[in-house]
């Protein structure tokens, strides 16, 4: 069983929901990412999605675009992100880490070399935004074979046929994108999400994490009610942008955001 499956199964057994933060690696500075990861674990998160910065983040809104620019300005390459995960693993062997990003940095490194290095570093899952399962035929098995969970997106526009096909290619969890749009937009409609996620649960036994548009304890609780976990990104990244100057202040601000979300999720009745 992968580390991701283990964590999600334990939570399910406890009747709890996963809190999954996303931050862009290398933002505000590559030297601070590992410390932010540990701080988020202390605030009660279950899985960390670590964004691999890319020069052309087509699926992201302005907040994460700027985070990519800040991280790239400090030379945050994919190799450097893997080194951050290694460092995180020196003192944390339990919290799963999913790398989330775009395909080209992985393609440039080479798929085998990347998959080997990711396992070596202690990465648990790979989510590549611009790699639909149709193009992942050669790539996803390279990950699965090494015990890395390939995680794919589902969207409001995804047909039933595709939901089944995507679930077949996935392990760990599937990531449901709550609305048509880019990260950081304020478009979420909880009723729509509830209906679609219930439907996805009929089509696959995999846990469903929901991301895009979750910005506070209230939306986290509402979405947590209908899913297996919530993914929180832009609101954290925006907090990083506004607290770049002081790392201790930044950690406090992230904790202040995550703690009420954790509490709200834990109040959900099974």
């Amino acid at each position: 069983m992968s580390r991701i499956e283990g964590v999600l199964q334990t939570l399910k057994g406890q009747g709890r929901k996963a809190l999954i933060p996303f931050i862009t690696a290398g933002d505000p500075h590559p030297d601070q990412t590992v410390s932010l990861m540990h701080s988020m674990v202390d605030a009660g998160v279950d899985i960390i999605e670590l964004g691999v910065p890319f020069s052309d983040p087509m699926a992201d809104g302005p907040v994460i675009q700027l985070a990519c620019e800040r991280a790239l300005k400090h030379g945050t390459s994919l190799r450097r992100v893997l080194a951050m995960v290694s460092e995180f693993r020196e003192t944390n062997n339990t919290t799963p880490v999913v790398l989330m990003g775009y395909l080209n940095p992985i393609e440039a490194m080479g798929y085998d070399a990347f998959a080997d290095a990711a396992v070596q570093a202690g990465v648990d899952g790979i989510l590549t935004v611009d790699l639909p399962p149709e193009e992942a035929g050669d790539v996803a098995p390279l990950f699965s074979r090494r015990g890395l969970d390939p995680i794919f997106l589902l969207a409001p526009t995804t047909t039933d046929e595709r939901i089944r096909a995507i679930a077949d290619h996935s392990s760990g969890y599937v990531y449901y994108v709550s609305f048509n749009g880019v990260t950081g937009a304020a478009k979420i409609n909880v009723d729509d999400v509830a209906a679609k996620v219930a439907h996805i649960h009929e089509l696959t036994a995999l846990p469903v994490g929901v991301g895009f548009g979750i910005r506070d304890a209230k939306t986290a609780a509402a979405v947590g009610q209908v899913s297996d976990g919530v993914i929180v990104g832009s609101v954290l990244v925006d907090t990083i942008a506004r607290n770049q100057a002081d790392i201790e202040e930044l950690k406090r601000a992230l904790t202040d955001l995550l703690t009420p979300m954790r509490e709200a999720l834990d109040r959900i009745k099974p």
Partner: peptide, 19 residues
Amino acid sequence: RGHFGAFGGRFVSETLMDS
């Protein structure tokens, strides 16, 4: 799948696939 030899294809986020 829209490939010209090793090139082309459809590398987009899931939201656009159906369209």
